[in-house]
Amino acid sequence: MVSLHKFANPARFVRMSSALLPWMVGMSAVLITVGLYLGLFVAPPDYQQGESMRIIFVHVPSAWMSMFIYSGMAIASATGLIWKHPVADLLAKASAPVGAGFTFATLASGSLWGQPMWGTWWVWDARLTSYLILFFLYIGYMALWEAFDDPQRAGKAAAILALVGAVNVPIIKFSVDWWNTLHQPASVMKMDGPAIDSSMLVPLLIMALGFTAFYGAVVIVRTQREIMARKVRTLRMAQVQA
């Protein structure tokens, strides 16, 4: 009976998220298609960077996603630690590989932009270094989940790492303002409005929304998988005891 109560909340998550899933899939497909079309065919080249500027249409949305996903994981981890919400840890666990993927995409596309524009694939400035640390945090978080046999303890350890690593998020965001970096300062999320022409800003925002919907769809599937995995575990333990 105790286990039944435990599943009540995840069951509601599964029901609600399943209803949401087709919308997320549809939105991400439409938005990414439109964003790619506008970004590759309609948006003009930049007056300085020429056509290489189009890299920002994948680089910046990936970067936003990796920061957004990490922040979400930190909040979910705090919720899991404090209120023992049964889905929070699983949501964070399900998000980590997606965030790590976006972080890698950010680093790779940024490197491919840096080589022709800056004249180097990589520099150890505050922005790039803190971003690499974000990638390692994701990897460390995923490794911690695997390091423990007991999912309860694994979840706790991973949640603490996620919270400790959260200090890196504002460091990434403000690194370009606090220190001299090679990386340029923020163009879109700045106090006095975006310093980017609307013909480039619109495809950028559409891509970012598409990536967000993509994350939504993928994280629903992955969290449901984690919920089933936990059910499988309880059933197996019941079998052993029986």
């Binding site: 003009p44 930049d46 007056y47 920002i56 800056w118 180097t120 480039m200």
Partner: peptide, 18 residues
């Protein structure tokens, strides 16, 4: 021994810059 270009935060089409 090495020269790197630093980009600013402005993005715009050539016509707008002109």
């Amino acid at each position: 021994s090495e020269v790197l270009a630093k980009h600013d935060e402005n993005y715009m089409p050539p016509e707008v810059a002109d």
